[in-house]
Design a protein around this nucleic acid. Structure first.
Lengths: 219, 219
DNA sequence: TGTACATCAGTGAACGCGCGTTCACTGATGTAC
DNA sequence: TGTACATCAGTGAACGCGCGTTCACTGATGTAC
């Protein structure tokens, strides 16, 4: 067989793997990540429990793979939004759409951490990719609205504590802005997705838009 | 026995109930809410599993009770911070201390929701209590910094969509400010407690303080 | 083109585990006369 | 003060459940000569 070509068996394998993950996402959507059961997935696929071990070494590997896919999907969404030129508002609204499309996927990334679980290195690499996109956009936005590199005492702190942005040319004020985007947008989204806004009366989208406006303008 | 007086049996009962809850909190702290097991609690207390059914009708009642206590504790913390006159910064830093003191307790309130779980009415009443304190402080802060009742389009929306603040005299701008406090502070805290800041290099407390400064000033 | 062999997806039985929960029961603590 | 009775905390055995995971096996699919 020619190297690089995919044999029918290989194609079948990756197709079944994808189906397993699809069912896993359905389960997570309806019962949360802790409700994920290999046996239940197998039953839905019409196969026996042990059969899944042909495709995943166990429950942990499957979950890690789902988390990786969630991060990957967010990074791709971010990159696409940044490239399409919508600036910071475009990025923010893309993030909200991504979150609303599948709340449990959002929580898999930003929700309550499982004590003791540690993400593998390739996943932390994706988080850096995400932050890099955010930083790019914030640098552009900061250049538009005001020129100062350092505006307050926390900016000064950031000038000396920027391991997370190592290698990125963003000035302290842009770093600060990126952190504020990150915390503020996730503050809104985690409350909204967890249902804390239901019954309050206002339209969450408008609150989100108001916050984005403020981030895009001055800060 | 005189009505209202607590018999030795009653005192013993509530003491054991408290011990059960204490062990439950320990378990939650080390394994998350889903790792809570009645049998494991019983074993730690040196008693048999079924014995716990003298004190709680089942696992669900115990968890609901813990959630209620968490909300209660947050409401009391809020009330105390507001009464001590520290204003919005005082409230914010009290919230952060409360969150850091027991991250899993924080996540029980603001973390990933369990699909299908619905909090009983008396708990939603506590959330209104919490919002009322926040609103009080925001009204005072808004009066200090600027007089306008309505400043932007979202304020106008809030004027007509304020079920959550029914009965509270806060003007729209103060309502808006309260929502921003809520989302921004929780945005920072949920990321910090979930460990998303670790390894980034900066001091989370300084970022939090910078955000609080901005909330306390203009907005 | 046909045969011999290797690969590998999937099965069914079984293991051990811990879970929540029920039940009938024992024994100590408190109450009433 | 002493006895008879009721209350109730806690036990031990048992039930049924679903879980992740292992193992030896079957049967189909692909490969090599």
């Amino acid at each position: 067989m020619a190297a690089g070509a995919t044999s029918p068996r290989e194609r079948y394998r990756s197709q079944v793997r994808a189906e397993i993950k699809a069912r896993a996402w359905e389960q997570i959507a309806s019962a949360g990540a802790t409700g994920l059961s290999l046996n239940a997935i197998a039953k839905e696929l019409g196969m026996s429990g042990p059969a899944l071990y042909r495709y995943f070494s166990g429950r942990d590997e499957l979950i890690t793979e789902l988390i990786r896919d969630a991060y990957r999907s967010l990074a791709d969404t971010f990159r696409a939004a940044a490239d399409s030129g919508g600036g910071l508002p475009g990025l923010a609204h893309a993030l909200r759409r991504w979150a609303l499309a599948d709340p449990q996927r959002y929580f898999l990334v930003y929700g309550t951490p499982v004590p003791g679980y540690h993400a593998p290195d390739d996943i932390t690499a994706i988080t850096q990719e995400i932050m890099a996109v955010l930083l790019d956009v914030c640098v552009a936005a900061s250049a538009d609205t005001h020129g100062a590199d350092t505006r307050d005492t926390f900016d000064a702190h950031l000038a000396d504590h920027r391991q997370w942005a190592a290698g990125h040319p963003a000035p302290p004020a842009a770093l600060h802005r990126a952190l504020l985007c990150w915390t503020r947008l996730h503050g809104h989204l985690s409350l909204e997705l967890a249902g804390h806004f239901t019954g309050m009366g206002f339209d969450p989208e408008l609150l989100f838009a108001a916050e984005v406006d403020e981030l895009a303008g001055g800060r």
